[in-house]
Write a protein that binds this DNA or RNA. Structure first.
Lengths: 329, 329
DNA sequence: GCCACTGTTGGAATCGGTTCCAGAACTTTT
DNA sequence: AAAAGTTCTGGAACCGATTCCAACAGTGGC
């Protein structure tokens, strides 16, 4: 079997404690001993058993990454960055996909809570109250959601929306639709609020279309409703819905952007590939994953350091072919 | 803090051992005792500490999911299914993204090996030899790769290729290109072999284009080379490359499928969204994830059950707009 | 040459479960 | 009612690390 600390101790002719110190706190051990221990460890290919370590230190070396749907192309970029940054801190990532279900989310969190040191909750769907209570038990960093003053990483959507609406207004659009995402999504509520406020300020009229699932199907399903709303542009909660709209419009022979302009959020990789390519508000996903891990690590080290640090990442409108001058009405 | 087994024992007025049995092996304990323990456990909200359990049982309750690039849209579907099925077996999923790097892959595996009961290695890039050695240490199920007779889940690519080439031949294509993926990819080598053999059998000529990264950029970069090869159709290692080709051809004013037909593999969600939509060989990703977990669980339970069970999943050509009759040459 | 001091080291307790083993508590048999 | 058998139960060892504490060695000062 794998070598344990005892094997190393025996081979090096020292006690367990010394082996442990030689590896964990090298300056507390005489160079000669340290050397012997290192050699013995190397010879046996010794790797400390993380489970045993966890038990005595109370730290697992794992972080939980919880997200609503990894099939949504927004997330893989974040996941990848989280993974990479976590590895640099010698942390492993436990992944949980909640299928957009708030109850499943809480259930998964509570199941995982003993095996992780902290959570990165991406776009969580649960209520503020429930999330607050999770955050009371375990260190948590929220991603793409703000819960009071708790640590979080967010995108400056408000600014993205300002850019998008300014862009549309400059193209002569006066009446635009907003296709809302899941009702349980905090980001959705935030975006709706920003859009209302920016639109009012810029004297645009906003028509709100029902909540749909943030998927292609959701966008396709709502296309008719948008066409009936006699708007010249539509802003979708995210790119998946935006792509669904493009697909729906195309199927109905509606020309984008000549007849109607479409703007999405997230700037997922596919956005630039379709025809016409989708104008979208880019979110720096890698930076987001990295920052999330960094904040969490900070939270884990500053034990009880109630420093509710929050980060806001910049967004940027990427103008592509799906937006153009407003159609004559 | 959280309640431990001792707290439960004290409250129920029994020993630790009885608590443990009452919860793990209820039939070995008198109903009255069992009841008292359950009540005490419920009252304290007791949840066994998985770390402690792991240490004594030698099982972690985790499985490691290793894949080359989660940003490749082929994987999220698999990951989601793995996650879900694993949860049903009360297993947590540790995710590792290797960035297509064989060395990083082995390093990640060896780091994680102590904290998981087994691995699901998706499209691993390491050598047969290294993988065999990993498989000697820990239960492993290979996904999208075959290593000797070791347990694996694979797609019947050969059949998919037969379908694709038959389709192209029926459209009058006589000379097609194959854009190879990463040299380290086993699937790539397999596909190349199948294509050669099927093409020979059907009397088609195959031109092989250099190995590229299985990304959009890879496809775009190789577009010129394909155009220079005077073929009427091109088969790409995967859809990402296929989409890159479409994008590259479009940028050069080459019409698909009038001038050239394109076929991809994987049938990723984006394939149906671009214009023209990409003809692709579909792989049942969810089934793949589920089967992988099932095989692994089986392997974990049949300790030393050297049953090298392997599954082969069906593939299906999805014909879309990117393929059409061969251009006149 | 003795004392005090810092620097190292080994022994043992600990984390929270699981499991073996021996003995206690019940049943059944005679 | 005693003997034999079965079922339950508690004590203790164990998994593999970490860490506290006491003991020890070596150094320097006097």
């Amino acid at each position: 079997m794998a070598a344990t600390i005892k094997d190393v101790a025996r081979l090096a002719g020292v006690s367990q404690s010394s082996v442990c110190r030689a590896l964990a706190a090298p300056d507390q051990v005489r160079p000669a001993t340290r050397e012997r221990v290192h050699q013995a460890a190397a010879q046996l290919g010794y790797r400390p058993n993380r489970v045993a370590r966890s038990l005595s230190t109370g730290r697992t070396g794992n972080i939980g990454l919880v997200l609503p749907d990894i099939a949504n192309p927004f997330f893989p970029g974040v996941v990848k960055a989280v993974q990479r940054r976590a590895r640099e801190f010698d942390l492993a990532v436990l992944l949980a996909d909640t299928d957009e279900d708030p109850a499943a989310e809480l259930e998964l969190i509570s199941t995982m809570t003993k095996q992780v040191d902290g959570f990165l909750l991406c776009s969580p769907r649960a209520s503020d109250e429930d999330l607050r209570s999770v955050s009371g038990d375990t260190p948590v960093v929220f991603v793409n959601r703000r819960v009071g003053r708790l640590p979080s990483v967010n995108f400056d959507s408000a600014d993205g929306i300002r850019q998008a609406i300014t862009h549309l207004a400059a193209l002569g659009h006066r009446r635009v639709a907003y296709v809302a995402g899941p009702r349980s999504s905090w980001v959705n509520r935030e975006r709706l609020r920003s859009i209302r406020s920016v639109a009012t300020a810029m004297d645009l009229e906003v028509v709100e279309a029902g909540n749909v699932t943030p998927t292609l199907e959701g966008g396709i399903a709502v296309a008719d409703q948008i066409l009936a709303a006699s708007v010249t542009a539509v802003i979708a909660f995210n790119d998946m819905i935006g792509l669904g709209l493009l697909s729906g419009f195309n199927a109905r022979g509606v020309n984008v952007p000549a007849d109607i302009s479409v703007v999405g959020f997230d700037n997922i990789p596919t956005a630039g590939l379709v025809n016409p390519p989708l104008t979208s508000v880019d979110m720096p996903k890698e930076q987001c994953g990295r920052s999330g891990v960094e904040l969490l690590v900070q939270l884990l080290n500053d034990r009880e350091g109630r420093a509710g640090s929050r980060r806001l990442l910049p967004t940027q409108l990427i103008v592509r072919g799906s937006t153009g001058p407003a159609a004559r009405t």
